[in-house]
Amino acid sequence: MKKVYAFEKNCLGCGLCEVYCRTAHSKSKDIIKTYKKENVDSAITIEEIEKNGVKTFFALQCRHCAEPKCVQACISGAMYKDENGIVRNIKEKCVGCQSCIMACPFGAIKMSVSGTVISKCDLCTENGNEPACVKNCPNGALKFMDLEEDKKIR
């Protein structure tokens, strides 16, 4: 399946992917209104690596695993893998127990700002063809692709 892949050498750590992630998951879909009025979670974590005084970054979101540990651990059935392979979370069912946070080996799940449910990447492909983070990364550090395709590139 197509997933979001991060290319460290292109990542500036600017955080724009997070801004657009929030906007894509907001009610208004407006970048300013989202920032000012809506309390929306970003499903992305930007990590920093410091080596010999040089900082590099990469953005991480859910890997939509083939055998998702978060789904195995979920006590409510809120977390599930849909027919397209996307690992989703049903907010109405989630009790915020954090079993999925305990299980995800990527640390790709966050507690939502509300503190009662979790928040994770849903690939937001409904909004168009490419996830919002990929579409808006100014330096091409995020690519939306199939693993096979990816092997050819690397």
Binding site: M102, P105, G107
Partner: peptide, 13 residues
């Protein structure tokens, strides 16, 4: 302080 706890779990595993 549970952020990214699953990474610890993976280290044990």
């Amino acid at each position: 302080t549970n952020e990214r706890a699953g990474i610890y779990t993976s280290l044990i595993n």
